[in-house]
Structures are given as C-alpha cells and as structure tokens.
Amino acid sequence: MISFSNVNYSYQKGTSALSDISFHVDKGEFVFLVGVSGAGKSSVLKLIFRETVAGSGQVAVLARNLNRLRRREVPYLRRQIGVVYQDFRLLPEKTAAENVAFALEVIEANPKEIKRQVPRVLNLVGLGDKGARYPHQLSGGEQQRVAMARALVNNPPLLVCDEPTGNLDPDTSWQIMTLLSQINLLGTTVFIATHDKEVVDRMGRRVLELQDGRLVRDDSKGVYRHEA
C-alpha cells in the first residue's frame, strides 16, 4: 500500500528533511507516524500524497511508483487517497453535506451517485442528522467528522491523516480515533501522523518514529516513546 525504500529528501535550500527512510505498510494496516515537530512527519505525508518528490530512493503508493508518476496522473492518485488535516479545511459557505458532495462533484462524479454516497458516508461518521448544518454550527469534533466523511466518500483504499486530533480535546480525540479504527475494520488502510502521545499509547497499534529525519523505531504494537 505504501512503500519507502532508502528515501532521501531535502528542502530546496539543501537542508536534509529525511534521510534513508525505508518502511512498508500493507493493505488493511493501521499505522501511527510519530515524532516531534520538525522530525519529518509532514515530509513523509507530502511524499505519499505526491505534493513533492523524493530526492533519491523510491516511494510507491497504491502500486504506483511516485518517482515516475506524471503530473497529470497525480489527480487520479489522489482520488484513491482520502486525506484529513488538523485544521479540517471545510468550506464555510457550504453545509456539511455540500462539503462532502463537493469532493465528488469536482472529480466529475455522477450526480445520482453523489446523492447516494453523501448520506451513506455521513451516517458512517455519525453525522446522519447534521448534514444540513454549516461548519460554524458544528463542534470541532463534528467538523473533523465531516472532513473524514469527505475523505471517505470516494471509497479510497488508503486514508492519510495529518494530526487529526491536533485541535481537539482528549475525549473528542478518542472518539475520532475510535471512528478511525472502525473505518480500518471496514478494510481501509489508515496512516496517521501525530504527536498526540495519549492516543498513540492507548491505541497500541504499529508505530513508526522519526527523529531528525531518520526512522528510529518501527514497533508493531507500539507506544509513543520508550522511556530510556
């Protein structure tokens, strides 16, 4: 599903962001990518999402070699990857349902299909009755659920989350994590970059840890950090 082999990546000014990263995520896995700010988490996500290309080494996502993916093929890769951000990124002038529908409209989906998929996915994230509300009428947790519904509406095999609980209180964070586990049980591979120690420890799932751009740990049932 995701495979990094000896990946190096540096920012434009030559400062190294990732050095010699190798890991592999299989279909159906649930993986945390942890590390302090600046450890390189965002760079890994950007590489998966093809916002940027590796300097050397190979990145493969969904059986595609991203080093060789052409620019015009990128949108079709992204249709297969759901993405959830810390700041939700909802359009304030659209309702929850419209925000979800928007993701299908702009990839030129069939309107009948949109009508069927939007309520289904809103039910899945537990917002079946709140589709007509605008983002400002929803709590932070609910807004993140809308963002998740939008990420899932096209049935992507892979869901990538960038600090999904970064703006949420612990209880709400836990609810979002529970929801992510349920989605994972339905077959979606889930890849979460976070520095939320509490949820990582409590979930006890596979953990990849980055430190100064290097992969220092890969535990199949990990916690946020082993105390030395």
Partner: peptide
C-alpha cells in the same frame, strides 16, 4: 484559495480547477 486547495487534494484535475 482554500477551495482550490481542497479541490487539489480530493483529486480534481488542473483543468477542472
């Protein structure tokens, strides 16, 4: 720009945007 950003990450083509 936020709308364009969302369109980009849900996989809209550049010409569609």
């Amino acid at each position: 720009r936020s709308q364009i950003n969302i369109m980009k990450f849900v996989g809209a083509t550049d010409w569609f945007i």
